[in-house]
């Protein structure tokens, strides 16, 4: 089975720290990490490979430093990886990103399955999986929390729905996105780390994957951010400043009133 896993580099924390004096964002030294949801995708891919044989290839679109995270994926059982990196890709929204990833996937060719994390923790959009499936014209299932049965032809999955769960069967080649319940990702071993240092890794530019630059990056992104701001938190609450017992008493009074 030839499996592709999509990986995104995200900041290790979503905390935005403001300088107490200048009130601007402090850039801290904390390193970027693999999007946590993608680590479940990696683990599931490696488990399927261990069961059915084959290879797992990780793919990412990002800055050159993303190599470090792709090598980390290779320490965890991924066999090879490719990175799409080019100035032309910068400023991409989900549509332009899924276009670039689809070209990367075509470079890998004749894959059976693409696995994505359910969403990325920085953007929280959960769009890349479904959009990539559309770019490639393959079927997809989102929010998979368990693969109940797998073969070279199809998967039987349990997925999360609005009202519980559903069991679905999907024919390969296909794309699935996975939730955190699906597995417990392994940690790399020392030998895994050694492998990752010399594992096959290839960088592609936009031209090398035959990209139409008008569909990449900022130019290829239909959406654009026009403003960003810190949320308004000026709403005034009544502060209860009594002792614990007085506060509890006050809240019980509120409780009596609303009941």
């Amino acid at each position: 089975m030839k499996i592709l896993v999509c990986v995104k580099q995200v900041p290790s924390t979503n905390e935005v720290r403001l300088d107490p004096v200048t009130k601007t964002i402090i850039r801290d030294g904390r390193q970027a990490v693999i999007n946590p949801f993608d680590t479940y995708a990696i683990e599931e891919a490696v488990r399927l490979k261990e069961k059915h044989g084959g290879t797992v290839c990780a793919i990412s679109m990002g800055i050159p430093a993303t190599e470090r995270l792709l090598r980390d994926a290779m320490a965890r059982g991924v066999d090879q990886s490719i990175l799409l990196t080019d100035r032309a890709f910068a400023g991409a929204d989900t549509l332009a990103t899924s276009y670039a990833l689809s070209l990367g996937a075509k470079q890998v060719g004749d894959f059976d399955l693409i696995i994505c994390g359910k969403m990325a923790v920085d953007g929280d959009t959960a769009q890349i999986g479904p959009e990539l499936s559309a770019q490639l014209g393959i079927p997809y299932v989102t929010d998979v929390c368990e693969i109940l049965e797998s073969s070279e032809e199809k998967l039987r999955c349990k997925k999360i729905t609005d009202h519980g769960f559903a069991e679905v069967e999907i024919k390969l080649p296909a794309l699935i996105t996975v939730s955190k319940d699906i597995n417990m990702p392994r940690l790399p071993s020392i030998s895994g780390v050694r492998f990752s240092l010399q594992a096959p890794f290839r960088v592609y530019t936009a031209a090398e994957v035959g990209a139409d630059v008008n569909r990449c990056g900022l130019s290829g992104s239909p959406t654009q951010v026009v403003k960003s701001f810190t949320p308004d938190r000026t709403h005034q609450a009544t502060h209860l400043n009594g002792t614990t017992s007085e506060n509890a008493d006050a809240v019980l009074k509120i409780f009596e009133e609303v009941r």
Binding site: S12, R30, Q31, V33, P36, D72, A75, R186, L187, P188, S189, I190, S191, G192, V193, R194, L197
Partner: peptide
């Protein structure tokens, strides 16, 4: 860090261990 990790691995091997029987954590969540 890499050099030292591999040095740990060598000491481990010398003491009869196998490097694949290890869990390496290189980021905060691990």
């Amino acid at each position: 860090a890499q050099q030292r990790l591999f040095a740990v691995g060598e000491a481990f091997t010398k003491a009869g261990g196998k490097e694949e029987n290890s869990w390496v954590a290189r980021n905060q969540s691990d």
